[in-house]
Amino acid sequence: MSVPGCRPMAEALLSIRNLSCVFDVSKPWLNRVIERDERRFLTAVASVTFDIRRGETFALVGESGSGKSTIAKMIVGLQPPSGGEIIFDGTPMRGQGGDMRRLRRRFQMIFQDPFASLNPRWRVGDIIAEPIRTFGLLRGSAVEREVERLLDVVGLSGRDREKFPHEFSGGQRQRIAIARALSSRPEFIVCDEPTSALDVSVQAQILNLMRDLQDEFGLTYLFISHDLSVVRHMANRIGVLYLGRLVEVAEGKTLFRDPSHPYTRMLLDAVPDLEMAGRRRRRVEGEIPNPIDPPSGCHFHPRCPLVEPRCRNEAPPEFPRGDGMAACFAVDRAATKEAAPT
């Protein structure tokens, strides 16, 4: 256990500092002039800060539109951030130069849809070998041997490298995508909903494989999912996003046993679970507001059972809670009350 409340820099492999992403969703100029419309912006990610420690699985959960995939894209460089910093192993990541290229070899991504993320015209062997060749890691027949080894690692056969992606099932394709991610020998893998396109029995295979690989190669994962039970199974620490803001960060066990933020509590109450057979859940109120025009103050206040006047005007800062934090005034007040001598 680390010191509560502070985030030791030493063990962080990836640090996200005040990361933001704003999309311009204005109508075309002419329409704006004719309809007297103003420019409109969608804040997909608003000043998010967290650390991912070496060797852990950090999960981001949230409903659609919460910004989890946008954060993943910014980390791997598929989406330029509007503000803030991404620091990988002590080096801030900016631009495209040669240094960045060497840095980028050390992280990879696994995408949600294994039917869309593999080029249908390429043989599996070429798909997996591409990062090896791009980064010049191996040459000649060593590449082929490495591809066969990787296929073996993910539970496929070396002979499969001659085949095309369409010859494989969804689960097998996701294994190919994992082999490709491993081929540049990364330390850090961003997994964006890696199993949500798969059936449950296949999902279990992939989740087990990802855990085995983590133990074997000492990988660090950023695991993104909307499925809380999958997250519970995979993550050491969890960050909960709501409308682009990080509302809570906690250790997996703590989050599920004792969630702090009212949104996390609502989310946990809402998940249908096998253990819930026959029981009645608490009713969930309201829906996610439109992210173009989010509520003032704390974005969650219109749905929050603990709402107080301050929440409507002021965005709550991050209050430390154990090893993590919760961005909620009510949680902070309850904590202060507990701490105060009676």
């Binding site: 099932s169 689960g171 097998q172 059936d199 449950v200 029995s201 296949v202 999902q203 279990a204 295979q205 989740l207 087990n208 855990r211 809380l228 039970s229 999958v230 519970r232 199974h233 066990k253 599920f256 946990l268 998940v271 679970d273 096998l274 253990e275």
Partner: peptide, 24 residues
């Protein structure tokens, strides 16, 4: 049996999910 074992739950933590080899 395999299907139920392969589903992670939020109420308790299993070190490893049951997996059914192969696919349908």
């Amino acid at each position: 049996v395999g299907l139920m074992g392969s589903i992670p739950t939020i109420t308790h933590e299993a070190p490893r999910l049951t997996q059914i080899p192969g696919s349908m």
